[in-house]
Structure formats: structure tokens, C-alpha cells
Design a protein around this nucleic acid. Structure first.
Lengths: 253, 253
DNA sequence: GAGTGGTCTAGACCACTTC
DNA sequence: AAGTGGTCTAGACCACTCT
């Protein structure tokens, strides 16, 4: 079943064989793979070799390993597409902000929890917000859930001068979300910028987002600018790359 | 130096210790970590345990392992930001297309190689291009290099009816790139859409892009639309997530 | 050839989940 | 208690890189 003298590592051959069976439907999504002990007998190799094969599959996101239970074929995640229209004024007028709007459209039950704190701006926040390092910023730390599962983490920073005395320093910003409140205070948002990247999650992110090993996160840094070009908000968003795609559209020229 | 009875796996403790030393500057970027044999003696553990620690660090992208040479602290990659202005008509008029324009701006020596082929549209291409499955498409398979290193892979598909008898069926599309030729043929591009995601690379992509383990790729699917809404091109782009970020800007509303 | 990481064996004990 | 994956040892041989 495997050829130790083929030049290809045995554990890779085993991983390849299992991959084929998963792809071919022999092991359905969600089903349990043979246990390591069974695979040891089946392929007549040591347990270490089997484990290396499993590690490969897990790293590629094909299977989920559950301690004390077994190895399972990972069902393909349902993908949510986030379009830039999520930030339109029309959407704000209709409902309660970007995330809740998306959620409603996708048909799941959303919830968010927010923690507020104030801190001096670090170098990056200062540069992006165009303020001095050490200036006070209002930090809104948000955890977004869909059907109880955490799907997005977002840390929003605003220069405190824009939030003092407003509900932006409270947990509930009301209908339309933070952007609606900024506009009511006279800070009309005229431009957005998003900077998109990807990386492997930190341990904390992996835990919070319940990411299987081998799943990267998408990182989005969004800046919102006022009509006069002053930056109003910097928002660092983290989401599971297997569940989200970002869609941008624009006119040529 | 490590505590086997602390409840934390020894290999994680070793990884943590090395992580601290890397973060603290004790091992500089690019420098060589002690060999596995040396670490075995230093921590008085088996080689397997040391290897697991190395695997962790490599998976998190902190180190690069070179067979027969050693383990090296990975220097932070220089990040290139790709803005959507790379697709403007003005940029096309000035030079030779999106990638080469970026390259010139970033100050490295670019080169691209192209292979052309024709194939029937698969289900996805058919849907996105708005043609029938099986209709012939022109496929332009591009490998983009910067200073010899492969940095981007792109597969562009166009309905063959738009390319027949044009240089789009040849390797060299001339000044301004493919979009300039389409416009000359009367197909004025009015809108772009990009769909951005991230995932772990396939083995082939890992090799081609020389990705260290633990580095995801950004995937961009770009659609270019004609004034009447007809899709002209579907472009699947893959790039190393540690070297690229994508920047989008738009007016509010 | 010496040194490095890559793969593999055979076996042990532990931690977690399920029954 | 039984079965599963998680960690670890002690050792072996191989493949790659450099000198």
C-alpha cells in the first residue's frame, strides 16, 4: 500500500492516500478516519509515521483532530462574502451597523459584545490616525458572534476628542452603529481605506475563533476619514479565512 | 531550564524559550539557532522533543529550516502594498500593466513569463464570465518575478471571442498590457470586482513562491466588466501573504 | 567527511473522551 | 474501563550542504 523505497516519505504517501479517499468521497465530511492504531496496522508502519501523516492533513485543514475522540474530515466551511456596501450610509440608516447588517442578510443570529477602554496611542495608531504618540484614544474592543460562535474580532480606535461626551464611550452606540453617531456629531465620513492581509493566527485568536490548525486569518485595517481628510477611526479586524471573503468593486479609472 | 512536571509540554516550553530569545534580540534576524544536537544537550531532552519545538516555531513563521544547514531566524519580510490604482487607465498609459507598474514603483527588477493555452470553461469560469460551460476560453498563465524570485502567480481567463485575432493570444501583449488591448478592440472596461481570501498554499504554490511553512497565500479573483456589464476577464491571483497587502479606498456612500 | 536536518522504529506513559 | 490522541525516550539510518 505504501512503498518505502519510492523516494517519497512514507508519511507523505499515507497522507496522500487519505487525501485521495477524502477527495473521492470515501470518507465523507464530518466522518471519522480510522484511528492511529488502525492505520498503524493497515499500513504496517510505526505510530509516529501515522501521526506525521495526520499532522500534514491537519495543517492543510483537511481534518480536525480531537484529543481522545478521533480524527474527522473537516466539512467545508460556508463562506460569507463581505462587500464594501456594508459601510454605506443607506445600510446604516436601515439597521444597526456593518456586522449586524451582514448577519441579517446571511440569515444567522448575530450578537456582539463590546469592551471600552482608553489608552495612549501607540506608534502605529498615532501614525494612522494622524495624532501624536501618547494622545488618548478610545478603544472599542468587539467580539462578534454568529449563532454563539465567535466569527470576528475587531479593535476600533478613535481619538478621544471625537468621542468625549458621546455614546461612543458607552457599550451601546445605538441604531446605525458608531459611524452614525460620528456623523451626528458633525464628523461626516467621506472616505474609507482598507488594508487587507493574511497571516497565521496567534494562539489566542486560534482559541477564540475556534480555528482548526492550518487556517489563516484575514486581517483588515480600516480607516475612516472625514471630509477634510482627518482620520476618525482605525479599525483592526480579524476573521477566519475559511469563512470569509472580502469583495471590493469600483469603477474603472 | 524546562520543567517536565509543569503541565505544559516540554517541547512547548522549549519553543517558548526560543521565541523569547528571538523576540529579545538574543538571536538576530537571519542568524542561526543552535543545532538540534546542541539543543538536545542544552535542555537534556530527546531529539524528537527538540524537533517538535522547531516545528512549532516554523509553523508560526518565526524560523526557516534548511535541510543540511540549520535553523535560521526569519527576517521580517518587506511588505508591498498593492493599491487599486494599479488598474487605472493612467497607469496603463504610462507603462506596461499592473504588475510591472507596481514593480517599478517599489524599485525592484521585475520580469514575467506567460504561457498561453485554450480550454473549455469549467463551471466556475462559466458562471463568473457569464458564458456557457464548455465555451472556449483563452488562458494566460503568468508567473511574476521580482529580482528573479517568484512573487505572484496569476491565471487569467478571457472568453475566446474577445481574444481571437488579437495579441491577447500571444505571449507579448505590448505596452499597457492586456487591458489596453481589450480597450483598443472596443471593449471599454468600466468596472472591476475583486474577491479576496486567504488559505494555506498547495505544495506546488509553496515551492514556486518559496514560502516558508506557516505562511498563507492571499487569493484574489478579479473580474473586469465592460460598460454593458459583460465580463471580459477573470483573473485568479496568488501571492505570498507575508509580502503583500492589498489596499482599497473608496468614497463613502 | 563532518555536520545538519529528515524519516522511521518500538515502546512507554499520559490526558482526554466516551461508555 | 476502554479507546483515542498527546508527549516523550533512545536509537537508527538517510539526504542534504558545506568545506
Amino acid at each position: 500500500m505504501v512503498d518505502p523505497s519510492s523516494g517519497v516519505a512514507v508519511y507523505r504517501q499515507i497522507a496522500h492516500a487519505l487525501r485521495e479517499k477524502i477527495g473521492g468521497g470515501e470518507y465523507e465530511p464530518g466522518s471519522k478516519l480510522p484511528s492511529e492504531t488502525q492505520l498503524v496496522e493497515q499500513y504496517d508502519v510505526s505510530r509516529r509515521t501515522v501521526r506525521e501523516a495526520m499532522r500534514l492533513l491537519a495543517a492543510d485543514g483537511l481534518v480536525t483532530i480531537k484529543h481522545g475522540v478521533g480524527v474527522f474530515v473537516r466539512p467545508p466551511a460556508s463562506v460569507t462574502r463581505l462587500a464594501r456596501s456594508r459601510l454605506s450610509r443607506a445600510a446604516r440608516a436601515r439597521n444597526e451597523g456593518a456586522f449586524l447588517a451582514d448577519a441579517a442578510r446571511q440569515g444567522f443570529t448575530p450578537s456582539t459584545s463590546v469592551r471600552i477602554r482608553f489608552e495612549p496611542a501607540d506608534a502605529r495608531a498615532a501614525e494612522l490616525l494622524g495624532i501624536a504618540e501618547g494622545d488618548e484614544v478610545t478603544v472599542r474592543d468587539r467580539v462578534m458572534r454568529a449563532n454563539g460562535l465567535i466569527v470576528q474580532l475587531a479593535v476600533s480606535r478613535l481619538p478621544r476628542e471625537f468621542t468625549r461626551g458621546t455614546v461612543l464611550e458607552e457599550v451601546d452606540t445605538g441604531k446605525g452603529g458608531a459611524y452614525a453617531r460620528l456623523e451626528e456629531a458633525g464628523h461626516v465620513i467621506s472616505q474609507f481605506m482598507e488594508d487587507v492581509g493574511a497571516r497565521m493566527p496567534t494562539d489566542e485568536e486560534r482559541t477564540q475563533l475556534e480555528l482548526p490548525p492550518g487556517t489563516p486569518v484575514l486581517t483588515v485595517t480600516r480607516l475612516a476619514f472625514r471630509t477634510d481628510g482627518v482620520a476618525l477611526e482605525m479599525n483592526d479586524i480579524i476573521m477566519a479565512a475559511d469563512r470569509y471573503r472580502l469583495v471590493y468593486e469600483w469603477e474603472a479609472e
